[in-house]
Computed example of a mutant assay.
Amino acid sequence: MLKTLTSVIILIFALNGLTAQQEFNIRLRTAIDGYYSESHNVITRDGYILEVHRIPFRRFRIKENDSKNPKPVVFLMHGLQGSSLSYIYLGPERALAYLLAEAGYDVWMGNARGGLNSRRHIFLNPDTNAERFFNYSYEDIALKDVASTIDYILKVTRQSQLHYVGHSQGGTAFFVLNSLRPEFNTKIKSAHLLAGVGYMEHFPNKILNAIAFGTNLLYSVALEQGIVEVLGPRDANSLNEEEYNKSPAYSLLLTVIDVIVSIHKQLEMVTPASLKQYAHFGQNIRAKSFRRFSYDPLENFIRYGSLSAPEYDLSKISVNITMHYTVNDHLLDERDVLSMASVIPNAKARKITRETYNHNDFVLAPDSKELLYDYILEELDKNR
């Protein structure tokens, strides 16, 4: 039965005209898991083409329409160097996307610019125009990618609101979008942030704390060397090692990128990202704050009207938020979570009960269903 249904679903995908290999891989994975899925292209206002995935039905179904009672919509946004795969990785009966689909939700999963599923642009080539293509930070992902995707989803589903779930940088993007563009608060019915990174006054990782002091120098050297992407075709493994000893700063840069690459290659679902995303986080770690990307004083004044980059004002966020966190997180301290929750009017903090639960466990740990997802489903059902 399962084999027959899977074959039928894959055939339907083929008839729909699959062209991109990465699109086929995601849709094939959901088909093998027994779910019908769709791929949608969202074009941002600055020309990036984002592939967004949708799981509209329960398992083993290819139709489930009820025009009188449309399904509530949930939008899942991944973390830094993640993808939509983050939310189906644990498979049926464990992965959040599948659990939501089974509970009767219309599930959408985003993909940020530069990733394997969104490494496209209407006129920029990410390989030959890399410096321009990868000139973005997480603020661009928030204000353009997440904003465009939310508007697209609401238009397609003909609904006025959706529920938001964001892991790590997916939470960061939520903070940025709803503080800088408060009108999006009315488009989001509720939000669950899984280790959503924002305040960094107590950033816990000592190694990254040390590296962050040299963020601007390292980023400047990287741009001079044409290094703008992490874990893409031009990552540290493909750099010209003859250049390694030319300067201490360049040597340190290669070491830093090697550290980043080694950390992420331990995961099975990483995609490329811009180095500017890391530089933005690095600036905030160094400044022990949560602020916009800092350029030189003149450019800051032109962009922001002040010589220094302004902080994000989280008090402007009015969405009903639950901020899930763990005390064993190497990228987010409990004190910073509680500080953010005290500033955001309708936010509450919820600690994961397993003491060894870490930053990546939010999407990788099999016991996330019991520790986290069941709670999210219960809260969403109260607010359908």
Rank of each mutant, 00 (worst) to 15 (best):
R335V: 05
Y199D: 13
R286Q: 14
G282Y: 01
S37F: 11
P310R: 04
R291F: 05
M269Q: 07
A95S: 14
N205F: 04
L231D: 11
E242I: 13
L180W: 01
H280I: 04
G166T: 09
R350H: 15
P126M: 06
F75T: 10
N358T: 15
Y373W: 13
L217M: 13
A191F: 01
S83V: 09
D381Q: 15
N129K: 07
A347D: 01
Y244C: 07
Y35A: 07
A273R: 03
Y325A: 11
I317R: 00
F134P: 05
W108D: 11
K144Q: 10
T172D: 01
N320T: 06
Y312S: 13
N346F: 02
H167C: 08
I43C: 11
N65M: 04
L253G: 05
L180D: 07
L100W: 04
L124T: 08
H167W: 14
D106V: 02
K288D: 00
D145C: 11
G226L: 08
T356W: 04
N16G: 14
N237A: 06
V343P: 00
D106T: 02
V73W: 00
R181M: 09
E131Y: 01
G91E: 10
L116K: 14
K189T: 03
P233C: 05
D381S: 15
T186D: 11
E93Q: 15
N129Y: 02
I207C: 02
V327W: 05
I10Y: 05
H167V: 11
N41T: 15
E379I: 00
S84C: 12
N205R: 07
I122A: 00
T157G: 00
S318D: 04
R119A: 12
S67D: 05
V363P: 12
L180N: 07
M340P: 05
S86R: 06
G166R: 03
Q283V: 10
G17F: 09
A147W: 02
A341D: 10
I321P: 00
Y48P: 14
S306R: 08
A249Y: 13
R45N: 14
N328G: 12
L100Q: 04
L100G: 02
R158I: 01
S339T: 14
T128W: 08
N300Q: 09
I122W: 07
G305A: 03
N320F: 01
Y304W: 11
I188A: 01
S190C: 07
D235R: 06
K369R: 15
M1T: 14
Y278Q: 05
N358K: 11
A210C: 02
A20F: 12
G232T: 11
V197C: 08
A130G: 04
H192G: 01
I263P: 01
P310K: 04
L162I: 10
K316E: 02
I62Y: 11
L80Y: 14
D106P: 03
N69G: 02
F184L: 03
D381L: 12
H53R: 05
H167T: 09
D127K: 12
G282W: 01
G104S: 00
L50W: 12
E242C: 08
R286T: 09
I153E: 03
L218M: 13
I376C: 01
I211L: 11
T6Y: 01
Q159T: 12
D333N: 15
T128I: 13
P310H: 04
G17Y: 05
